[in-house]
Nucleic acid binder design. Structure first.
Lengths: 155, 155
DNA sequence: TTACCATATGAATATCATTATCAAAAAAGG
DNA sequence: CCTTTTTTGATAATGATATTCATATGGTAA
């Protein structure tokens, strides 16, 4: 897979079109609307949230929730979007054109802070190696209470 | 919460009874069957898998799937059981009478290896602190291909 | 451009895991 | 034993995601 870090939207679009063409799939206005909404709003979306925002940003288009699910799956399969599973809060998606990172999640308000830590990545590879695994991926989520929620709780 | 590491089954049972009593709840044969099955099979179970095993181990008992869900939630709330969320594979539960650990998961065969690494834990606390968070929990899962599956793939 | 055909779409329906409801059963405490 | 409260299993409800299907649309070859 290509390295998608820090691509402009046009570059991302070219990449997407290439993937579609290679698979005999079609470039549609719905697919573009979903990709551009993700690009312009580099946050973490549930399928439902994204569906609502896409409809708001593209009122001229007819977009169904099923298409949002289908497109997110397609984008994720091809590495243009990544997801995290947040237990009860459900699955959230974000555009994958930024460097690898993990997530620090506030259990009170749901805020998500991204971070990356090379030392931990190194240790993870070491652990996998010790157990005879070839590492393909990892998931690291830290849960806590953010500064603001700490203040609110103590009131 | 008490430290539950390395308890014998009898000790765990006493702990469970104390929790129930403190909350005005009742000690039932279904609840005991579920706890003992988890204790005797220190693996990772989906609710469905555990339901089937409990019925197999205790054919004399009437046990419904709803009770398994309810009891797992109860045990988890009280720290006797811990769970991990495995994306498409669903949520899995295990007895929580062993030291804290994280999971290394084979993407091919689903095998789960447990490990613990103090250096990573330290780094996680440091990251949380840097971002103003009070850390309450974390989730770390490493995905890869285990030794055996590597062999099978190269055949 | 046009015509054709494969793919994509939205609406509706199905699915699947989990949760809630409720009448009957069982535990705890006198 | 009684009485009260909680628990139970069966079933229905829920909610997120996936599938179906008739129609619409994109890509392409002439």
């Amino acid at each position: 897979m290509k390295n998608l870090e820090m691509l402009t939207y046009d570059e991302l679009l070219v990449e997407f079109k290439n993937i579609l063409k290679a698979d005999g799939l079609k470039f549609t206005s719905q697919r573009e609307a979903i990709l551009s909404t993700l690009y312009e709003n580099p946050q973490h979306f549930t399928s439902e949230n994204l569906y609502m925002l896409v409809k708001q940003k593209h009122p001229e288009l007819s977009v169904g929730i099923a298409t949002v699910y289908r497109t997110l799956a397609l984008l994720e399969e091809n590495g243009l979007v990544s997801s995290i599973s947040l237990g009860i809060q459900g699955k959230k998606f974000e555009i994958a054109n930024k460097p690898h990172h993990d997530h620090l999640i506030c259990e009170s308000c749901g805020k998500i802070v991204e971070f990356e830590n090379e030392k931990i990545e190194d240790l993870q590879h070491q652990i996998a190696k010790e157990n005879g695994f070839v590492l393909t991926d990892h998931l690291m989520q830290l849960y806590g209470i953010c500064t603001e929620c700490q203040k609110n709780q103590s009131k």
